[in-house]
Design a protein around this nucleic acid. Sequence first.
DNA 1: GCAAAAATAGTAGTATTACTATCAACTCTT
DNA 2: AAGAGTTGATAGTAATACTACTATTTTTGC
Lengths: 224, 224
Amino acid sequence: MDALLKNLKISINESIYLKDPESSDLGKRIVKYGIILINELGFDNFTFKKLAAHIESTESSIYRYFENKHKFLIYLTSWYWGWKEYQLVFATNNLTDPVEKLLKAIEIVTREVEEDQSFNHINEVFLNKIVINEYSKSYLTKEVDDENKDGYFAIYKRLSNRIRKMISDVDASYPYPASLASTILADSLHHHFLKNHFSSLTECDDQTSPSQYFEHLILNLLNL
Amino acid sequence: MDALLKNLKISINESIYLKDPESSDLGKRIVKYGIILINELGFDNFTFKKLAAHIESTESSIYRYFENKHKFLIYLTSWYWGWKEYQLVFATNNLTDPVEKLLKAIEIVTREVEEDQSFNHINEVFLNKIVINEYSKSYLTKEVDDENKDGYFAIYKRLSNRIRKMISDVDASYPYPASLASTILADSLHHHFLKNHFSSLTECDDQTSPSQYFEHLILNLLNL
DNA sequence: GCAAAAATAGTAGTATTACTATCAACTCTT
DNA sequence: AAGAGTTGATAGTAATACTACTATTTTTGC
């Protein structure tokens, strides 16, 4: 990953955390080992108590950074989407051909993160797996409308919007650019899951990636 | 709904429940008020204790039917997909034109359930909302592979397969029929959710339904 | 250079959840 | 009238999701 990216701080809505985990050593350890532990146990079996034991700290110290594990998940996934957004802007900014631009964007948001790109203390490979397995749990709640109003999902929505614009730029006549952008983002996560757990429900496997499926879809659906 | 359907029993894998809820009055009340309560509270806030209070029974009685609330969710969603499968088979069996057949199938699986069709004690409108809001939580778990092996998701997979075949029947050259079937099933649930909570991420609203979006997608993606 | 204030870490406790176990009561059959 | 099956009532446990409070360390203001 580009050196510039390594020095950037992904900025996350302040109401998601009580105290910025980037502001202290403990905060960074919470994030680092939180990712490792959620990946290992799954979000449902993950608790602050287990995380505290893992980093040799206490539950109450973690509660000073995050109100509860739900907000911790929102924090981690927001970071992930912010990171994806940077990659997307970075990789497409210099492209002039709108088709090339869109295809590059699709590739970035649908591909699997394969190696640890070591954005400071965050393991992006694990974080990608967490997003695939747990992201929908962050918004499939009774509190979604309040949290949406408070901007908890702002980064994801901004990213979706960027893709929507790129779709309209290649085919202004396509009537569902926002829906298609949403389909690409959400359904590519779903396809990574299917590939790993319900292989009969997708053609994607070691040879064929979700990226190829979505690229083919875009190229055949839009008027290019 | 057709009278024939009302008399059919949706058959659900026996290892999902401890005692068939269709076999007793209490069982039916658990299912009936379980649906109402999950719809009201959301699955995360739903407990067997609350349900027991609601139906003036006890936690321990409910535990005699279902091991835990996760299996209860699997039961309810399996029932839903079984019900959709019946509707799909019923409505498409007599159609000879494969395009018409596929479009009918798409309409059935993507449309919102709008009125209570009173399949005995089950409120299908609420159950549809539950599937939209909670279905993915039933498989996004660490136990998914074991539960899949035990056939917990068999009905959904069978339904997805039926759509896959219909896609291949209208365009044998399309390379991703299984993936496209999965996209239609999962992403239409997602679009109903977006419509209700993230309206900026979709063109779907009161005027434009997810069904229209997916119909347009199919008609423009496949070689018809 | 040091005391007061602010930030942070650690301990202990509570309410709720997600069960399990046991026993009593009632019904339905043979 | 015995026995099986179903439901109800009560109690108990371990884990979860916190909150309140105390102890320690760090910062800063003079």
